[in-house]
Amino acid sequence: TEKQERAIEYIRRLGYSEEEARRILKKANGNPDLAKEIARRIG
């Protein structure tokens, strides 16, 4: 989804690889607090 793409872009800007960014997002899917934090940061 567009939100996922924005989140991946944001995480990659922090210096993670695409693969790492996707792994972090997968974790965020099972972790509402982390997901909220990422969403808050990407606006």
Rank of each mutant, 00 (worst) to 15 (best):
G15C: 02
L25W: 06
Y10G: 04
E2Q: 12
A21V: 05
R22G: 04
I38P: 00
N29E: 08
I24Q: 01
R40Q: 14
N31H: 07
T1A: 11
L25N: 01
R12L: 12
I11C: 02
A7T: 10
R12H: 05
R22C: 08
L34S: 04
T1E: 11
L14I: 06
E18T: 08
R12Q: 13
R41P: 06
T1G: 09
G15V: 01
G15W: 01
G15P: 00
L25D: 00
I24G: 00
K3Y: 11
I8V: 11
R13A: 15
L14Y: 06
Y16H: 06
I42K: 08
A39G: 03
P32T: 09
R13H: 13
Y10C: 06
P32R: 02
K27I: 15
N31L: 05
A28C: 05
R6A: 15
Y10F: 10
L25G: 00
G15I: 00
R23K: 12
D33F: 07
E18N: 07
E5R: 12
L34F: 06
P32Y: 06
E2I: 12
N31E: 06
A39S: 03
T1M: 11
K36C: 09
I38W: 05
Q4V: 13
Q4M: 10
E5N: 10
E5M: 11
Y16A: 03
L25C: 04
I8Y: 07
T1P: 10
Y10E: 09
E5A: 11
A28R: 01
E9A: 12
G43V: 15
K27S: 13
D33T: 10
S17D: 06
E18K: 07
R22E: 06
K26Y: 10
Y10A: 07
I42S: 13
R6M: 14
R12T: 11
L34I: 10
Q4F: 07
L14E: 02
Y10N: 04
R23T: 13
I8S: 02
R6E: 15
G30V: 02
R6P: 06
G15E: 01
S17Y: 02
L25T: 01
R40V: 12
E19M: 11
R12Y: 05
I8G: 01
A28F: 03
E20C: 13
A39W: 02
S17A: 05
P32M: 06
A7N: 02
K3I: 13
K3W: 09
I8N: 02
E37W: 10
L25V: 04
R12I: 15
E2R: 09
E19R: 10
R40F: 09
I11T: 00
A21I: 07
N31C: 05
A21C: 02
I42D: 14
I42P: 14
R41K: 14
Y10L: 05
A7F: 05
R12K: 14
A39E: 02
L34R: 09
Q4G: 08
A35E: 02
A7R: 01
I42H: 15
E37Q: 10
E20G: 07
Y16I: 07
E37R: 12
A35M: 04
L25Y: 04
Y16G: 00
I24P: 00
R41D: 12
E5L: 12
R12W: 03
A39M: 03
L25A: 01
S17G: 06
K36Y: 10
N29M: 10
K3F: 10
G43W: 15
A35L: 03
Q4T: 10
K26D: 12
I8R: 04
D33N: 09
R6N: 12
R40Y: 09
E37Y: 08
R41I: 12
E19Q: 12
A21W: 02
S17Q: 04
N29F: 09
R6L: 14
N31Y: 04
G15K: 02
T1Q: 11
G15F: 01
A39K: 01
L34A: 07
I8E: 03
E5H: 09
G43F: 15
E20A: 14
A39H: 02
E37V: 08
N31Q: 06
A35W: 04
S17W: 02
N31P: 00
A7E: 03
E18F: 08
E19D: 13
A35R: 02
A28I: 03
E5S: 08
R40S: 09
E18D: 12
K27C: 10
G30D: 07
R12C: 05
E20M: 12
E9S: 10
E9P: 01
I42Y: 14
G30P: 00
E18M: 09
Q4R: 09
S17I: 03
R40D: 15
T1H: 11
I8W: 05
